[in-house]
Simulated scan of single mutants.
Amino acid sequence: MALIEALHWTLPPGVRAVFSTRAGGASSPPFESFNLGSHVGDDPRSVTANRQLLKMQLGSARPVFLQQVHGVDMVALDRDTPDGVVADACMAVDADLACTIMVADCLPILLTDRHGRAVAAAHAGWRGLVHGVVDNTLAQLCRQACVAPSEVLVWLGPCIGPTAFEVGADVRDAFLAHDASATEHFKPREQHQGKWFANLPGLARQRLASLGVSAISGNDGGVSWCTVHQSSRFFSYRRDGITGRFAACIWISR
């Protein structure tokens, strides 16, 4: 299996995007094998080797890895930005800086404008999504590229799917407090009072649409996008507990 996969997403000239799978790297179980996370307990030498493999796959672009904390902050990348900056979203306008988001159930979101002036990526677990990581990322991208949300292209990556993401009433209530129509993305779990199945990509699509974005590609909530169900392709923290991280990247190429 390939280390990375191209996205089925029509991008403006000069913009490229990929996501990685869990196969083809140097890590041993339970991180087998293409783990890109340095914070999960894997052998640091294996992680370094895997990140170098990713860099080789991206050509001249450098993937910039964040320290993600389920927040809403964004960092603007430049040539001097080191790996490990604390943020859950990033943006780049310079060529060959790959905005990189690592996940193992949360939703990676990639963005660019129709002119390819800027690219961005966001890490959207339920906390980040409900508290505004998408809102903040979109606003800063629009400001940088001088475009309206209607001119932004968005891709939603693999994440825990709507038949696997069980949440409590507190999560549902948090979304409904922001937008009552979010109720359509929560299905009660039969015989488990107070438990719900949440549709994370559906909630992200709803939030993006409310912000004026209409061009949304990628994860439609189908089982092929579910990290829990696609065990040979994706890491899943909910499924395995101790596990690695895969990544989604977007960059402007020279």
Rank of each mutant, 00 (worst) to 15 (best):
M1G: 09
I4T: 12
E5I: 02
A6F: 04
A6L: 12
T10H: 11
L11W: 01
L11P: 01
L11F: 05
A17L: 07
V18P: 03
S20G: 03
S20W: 00
A23L: 06
A26H: 11
A26E: 10
P29M: 09
P30E: 09
F31A: 05
S33W: 00
L36W: 08
L36S: 05
G37H: 06
D42M: 08
P44G: 11
T48A: 15
T48R: 15
R51K: 10
Q52M: 11
K55I: 04
K55M: 06
M56C: 12
Q57D: 12
S60P: 11
V64G: 02
F65C: 06
L66A: 14
Q68G: 14
G71Y: 13
G71E: 11
D73C: 12
M74D: 15
V75K: 03
V75T: 13
V75L: 08
L77K: 04
D80L: 13
P82K: 08
G84I: 11
A87K: 05
M91F: 05
A92Q: 07
D94C: 00
A95R: 12
A95L: 02
D96W: 00
C99P: 09
C99R: 10
A104L: 08
A104T: 10
D105K: 01
C106I: 07
L111E: 00
T112H: 03
D113E: 01
R114C: 05
H115P: 01
V119P: 01
V119S: 05
V119T: 05
A122E: 04
G125D: 15
G125T: 09
G128A: 04
H131N: 15
D135Y: 08
T137G: 09
L138F: 01
L138K: 05
L138P: 02
A139C: 09
R143I: 01
Q144R: 00
A148Y: 07
A148V: 03
A148F: 09
A148I: 06
W155T: 04
C159F: 01
I160L: 12
G161C: 03
G161P: 06
T163P: 02
T163K: 13
E166Y: 03
V167R: 07
G168L: 10
G168N: 14
V171H: 08
V171G: 07
R172T: 12
D173E: 15
F175W: 13
L176D: 13
L176A: 15
D179A: 14
A180E: 12
T183R: 15
E184C: 12
E184N: 03
K187M: 09
R189M: 03
R189Q: 07
E190W: 02
Q191W: 08
H192S: 08
H192A: 14
Q193N: 10
K195M: 07
K195W: 00
W196V: 06
F197E: 07
F197M: 14
A204K: 04
R205H: 07
R207L: 10
L211H: 04
G212Q: 04
A215F: 03
S217L: 05
G218C: 09
G218W: 00
S224H: 11
S232Q: 14
R233L: 12
R233S: 10
R233H: 05
S236D: 03
S236V: 00
R239S: 07
I242K: 15
I242D: 13
I242F: 09
I242V: 15
T243D: 10
G244V: 03
R245V: 06
R245F: 15
F246T: 10
S253V: 08
